[in-house]
Nucleic acid binder design. Sequence first.
RNA 1: GGACGGGUGGCGGAGCGGCCAAUCGCACCAGACUGUAAAUCUGGCGGACUGAGUCCUACGUGGGUUCAAAUCCUACCCCGUCCA
Length: 372
Amino acid sequence: MSAFTIEKKCAGTKARTGVLKTAHGNIKTPVFMPVATQGSVKTMSGEELRSMGVDLFVSNAYHLYLRPGEDVIRSAGGLHGFVSWDRGILTDSGGFQLYSLAGLRKIKSDGVHFQSHIDGSSHFFTPESVTGFQAAIGSDIIMCLDECVPYPATREYAEESMKLTLEWALRCRNKFEEIKGQEQGSRQLLFGIVQGSTYLDLRRESAARTVDTGFDGYALGGLSVGEPRENTFEIVREITPALPENSVRYAMGVGTPEELWECVENGIDIFDCVLPTRNGRNGQAITSQGKINIKNSEHKKDMSPLDDDCVCTVCKGYSRAYIHHLFHSGEILGMRLLSLHNVYFMLKSMDAMRRSIADGTFLQEKKKFLNK
RNA sequence: GGACGGGUGGCGGAGCGGCCAAUCGCACCAGACUGUAAAUCUGGCGGACUGAGUCCUACGUGGGUUCAAAUCCUACCCCGUCCA
């Protein structure tokens, strides 16, 4: 039985709402996952995430493997117990770190040599070991080991890398077959990742063969790595139809609110992005009127909330002037408040998308959002 | 009263004859950030002209030496330390 059920489809677009069943609850899609790389959505507590309605966040196998390591997490009863989170957790494999920490790794056909960014120690990761690790710490959704290809990439490199990702996907899947035989594993999900850079034919081949291998869900990887926005959208538009209608689809690392509307319209169900938290810590607030930099002097005496249309605890309780002051004073609270608001903004955007898909008003709502 | 030391851009603080509109830090002003090595990174920051650039005003104050002074001399005004 499939873990994903479509509930409503939008008449004029490919957008849909659905439910993804995990061992830690049913996730309503489309959904945005805040990023908790180290087991923490930076500056925010689990209680805060819960009260905002976060059902799922994304954590990272590479980082958690290096620190605190499998032993600690297992002795805490798994990642959920360790971080005190009873809802869904998706773990990324470390494929993104092949890109972001490119200087510290060597890719071989059988796996990846990594030099720890923390202490320089050497580690060797294989598709099997990475899948096994994610399963062992109790991740609800396990991502295959892939290579996130930088932009721009030559066709040769993109093709070679895409094929390697496919080989690894098969090995992850085979490893996962063993895991599924165990009690915890029977309730875990494994997602495959489509690569191929900006070359649509490579993307199509990657999608077809990943689907052939067979996964519980499919991700578009290698997006938002510096390519023009139009390329991102083109890939989403052209490749999503190559993924099974009844499977859940995940656009990794995407994105801004505008991008989410666009991708949902094209049938994407899951997103994650560091933007609301990272940019929040750097002083940027996402509002219904666009982004603002709270550090800018125009907010120094502004007693209005970040966003007049927002009902989050931050907008209900704090002024721009105060948050401006917190940032200029180097107070941690400033970063927390913007992170809270920004994540809330993303969640509310997803709410609006789900509601409007169900109502049949998706395109009107999208237009309304983009006009602001 | 005497002996030293010192007064530099919003602040701290380099420079001690030309490469100085003046290192650097802070503050300030902007920009960036998309599966997080990020509470990070970039740029700007005397004035005027849109600008590579050109000109103007500037290193306590006044006078002087020099082709050339923030840098040397001199008088004065402040500040600090010590001695009486």
